[in-house]
Design a binder for these strands. Sequence first.
DNA 1: GTCTATACCGAGATAGAC
DNA 2: GTCTATCTCGGTATAGAC
Lengths: 196, 196
Amino acid sequence: MTRTGRRSDGSDTRADLLTAAQREFYDRGYAGASIRGIAAGAGVDPALVYHYFADKQALFVAALRFPANPAEKLPQVLAGDPKELGIRLVGTVVSVWDSTESSPILTLLRSAVTNPAFADMLREFLIDAVLRPVLDSLVVQQRELRASLVASQLVGLAMARYVLRLPPLTTLGIDDVVQVIAPTVQRYLTGPLGAG
Amino acid sequence: MTRTGRRSDGSDTRADLLTAAQREFYDRGYAGASIRGIAAGAGVDPALVYHYFADKQALFVAALRFPANPAEKLPQVLAGDPKELGIRLVGTVVSVWDSTESSPILTLLRSAVTNPAFADMLREFLIDAVLRPVLDSLVVQQRELRASLVASQLVGLAMARYVLRLPPLTTLGIDDVVQVIAPTVQRYLTGPLGAG
DNA sequence: GTCTATACCGAGATAGAC
DNA sequence: GTCTATCTCGGTATAGAC
C-alpha cells in the first residue's frame, strides 16, 4: 500500500491525482481519458500515476470511491411514508447528481456504455446497493421487474439531463424534476404494473 | 462520389464495409471501433476504407444511414387513437430495436455518451425526427417538457435492456415491455404532469 | 480498384537516475 | 517521492506499386 505525505508546496499528490481522475473520467469516459491528461490535470508527472496505482483500471476504481460512497443516504430515503418513496428517491438521486461536478455514478454510466466490464459493475451496484434495499423495504410482488423499471427511468433521466442535455429537462430545477418523474417511479415501486 | 462495382468474387466492397462498420460501431462505440477491425470484418484491406470514405467519422455517419432511415414507421404510429399512442410508440420502438443485430439508434446512443458531437446528433434526431412530429399530432401544452420526458424513458429503456442488460427487463418479450412502459409514456404524452 | 508498406501519433507502461 | 527517457503497441491516415 502506497501511502503519501505532502509535497513541499503543501499539496497531496495522491489526492490531487484522484480529483483530476474524477474530472477526466467524467468528461471523457474510461477509454477517452488518458493517464497523461490526468497527470497534467493534477500538475504532476505521468509516471507518478503508476507509483500510486497499479494501472489505469485501478485508478478508475479508486477515483469512483473517492472521497466517499454516495449511497449512504439510503436510510433517509427508506424512512417515512412508502406512498412518497418515489418523491424521496428521485429528489435524493437528482440532488446528488446535481451537487457534484463529476458524480461517480455518472462517470460509471458513461464508461459502462462502451465497456462491458463496467456495465457489469454498474448493474451490480444499481441492483445490490440501491434497488434491492429499496424494494426489500416494501411489500410488493415482482420485485426484480420493479427494480429494473425504476432503474430504467433513473438511468434515462441521467442520460437526458446530463449526457444528452435535452431541454428543458436539463434546465429544470430539482423540485420540478421530482414533480414529473416521481409519479412514474412511484408506480414502478408500488403501483399496478399492467395497463395502469 | 465514389461509386463501386463488384469484386471478382461477386461481393460489394463498399456495402461490406458499411455492414461491418455497423457491427463494429455497435459493439464497441465510436472510439472503441477501429478501422483495422472494420476492414477485417468486411474481409478487405484497411486502406480501402479511405478509398471509399473520407475518414472515420464519415464512415460512421454513412453506417448510421445504411441501409435505411428507420423512422419511416412514424405515420403508422401517429395514426389511430391518441389514447393508445404510448402503446404504439413503445411497441414500434422496441420491435425496431429488437429486430436488428445492430440498431443505428443504439449505436448512436453508445457513441453519444463519450462524444459530445454525437450527443448533439442524437438529441437533434430524437427531437426533430421523432418527438416533435409525435407531439405536433396532439393537442397538449408543455410540448418540449413532454418530449424530453418521453425521451428519458425510452433512452432509459434502451440502456437497461440492451446496454446494462438488467434482468428481467432484458429477457421480457415485446408485449410485456409495452404493457409496463407504455402507461408511463402515455402519461408523459397526454396525461397530467403534476403529482398524477 | 486493390493491396503493401509505412509514416506518424498518442496511448499505457517500465527502468532507472536523482 | 519525483522525474527523464524510452519501450511497445495499436490507432488513423497516406504514398505508391500493381
